[in-house]
Design a protein around this nucleic acid. Sequence first.
DNA 1: CCAAAAGTGTTTGCAGTACACCCATGT
DNA 2: ACATGGGTGTACTGCAAACACTTTTGG
Lengths: 235, 235
Amino acid sequence: MLELYKQQTRCLVALDSIIFGFDGEELKLLLVKRGVQTDHDTWSLMGGWLKPNESLDQAAERILFELTGVSGIFLEQLNAFGDPNRDPVERTVAVAYYALVNVKDYETKISDTHHAQWFSMHDLPELLFDHREMIKIAIERLRYKAAFHPVGFELMPEKFTIPQILNLYEAIYGSNFDKRNFSRKILSTGLLVKLKEKQKGFSKKGAFLYALDTEKYKKHSDSFMNFIPNPEGLV
Amino acid sequence: MLELYKQQTRCLVALDSIIFGFDGEELKLLLVKRGVQTDHDTWSLMGGWLKPNESLDQAAERILFELTGVSGIFLEQLNAFGDPNRDPVERTVAVAYYALVNVKDYETKISDTHHAQWFSMHDLPELLFDHREMIKIAIERLRYKAAFHPVGFELMPEKFTIPQILNLYEAIYGSNFDKRNFSRKILSTGLLVKLKEKQKGFSKKGAFLYALDTEKYKKHSDSFMNFIPNPEGLV
DNA sequence: CCAAAAGTGTTTGCAGTACACCCATGT
DNA sequence: ACATGGGTGTACTGCAAACACTTTTGG
């Protein structure tokens, strides 16, 4: 039996994180400038190697922290990618994770560290290896997830307005939703607490700020409801 | 840059398949008797090692074929498992897949080969490593998937009856559904073709056999609808 | 006073659910 | 004849969708 183990080829295991962010208007992706070996403008997902004594989840969490200083955010395994030629240097199996953060809260932390930069989903640069494929699958997964789970709040800052969440969902799905129906739906979750303050500066009237009821959110984070119209439209 | 590659530790990569089967009555799982090194009654998922020149999907497909003679069936990546201690012999990252087959069509092929055996989901033997955890996640995934995608048909034989599909869905979700509503829903997909024959022998009246409209099925296999009542009940 | 965004209610239709009786046949 | 499982129809309800006007206030 142990013989069987000895004969097998070992293989590098990498972790790559697709980090989604939202700045109140647009859905963004955090990328890092690819190291010196390539002089052209290639960007990469946040990635790193699996170490001997950590689990995949731990490794993804660690790498995210090392590169951004961010921890404790939504981070979920997406898929493993193992095409034999996906990394031309040496065969590597990559386990991809996707993460959700709000851009505002972490902006400074992130940009300083590792030449990380937020890119609009609609305007991505040239990407390393199969990272574009990973992103494609991640956005599909995010759409799937956000359609039924209140995961969108992970992308919002602490205080946010209903029109902002609407913007977020429109950005995720690339389509427009009726604001009346949407607002009713979101409020009917009971996860939002209306604050006394208003967001000023953006619109003349100003929109009421809301906060997440974190207690309820924890309990209901795996709950299940329709957040978007016509979920049948999903692939 | 290449230095970075050199420094990293390589690691074994295994594939494990959770193979669901349905015999018309019960949901089953295909397991293999664990090799000689353990004399006690430990069973294992179908598994094998990743080879240097194959992708994860290819490897999963190959291993499934080697162990069962079955190919071309529904086989989808589930999750990667990478706890450092999950395999006590040597650290191994396992990429799990789940597969759906109908027991009847492949019964002989399977049982002959590798001491494989179908087990009732409710009566599983002692399992290797973290295989029980994998199975738990696989059944969750199957429930999730089958709730919205017509994937249940993958588990049915070529010809089947409505009561059989009902049985299947009841087995998957461990609860009972109203047969009138269920039958209406399933037929409303337009994926079924009613045959002239009846299934005889089981009930006195006999139930009409149906076949899958494979053309439509291919087109709609990623379509989206509710197959079960109260999908909110899902985790 | 005007422009721009926020906020709010009602009607309509469909899909999901609950529910009960007749049918066909082998024994 | 009867027991067993197969097959069907209807009424109700609740949620989702469509839809338009009023409010606020900065400029």
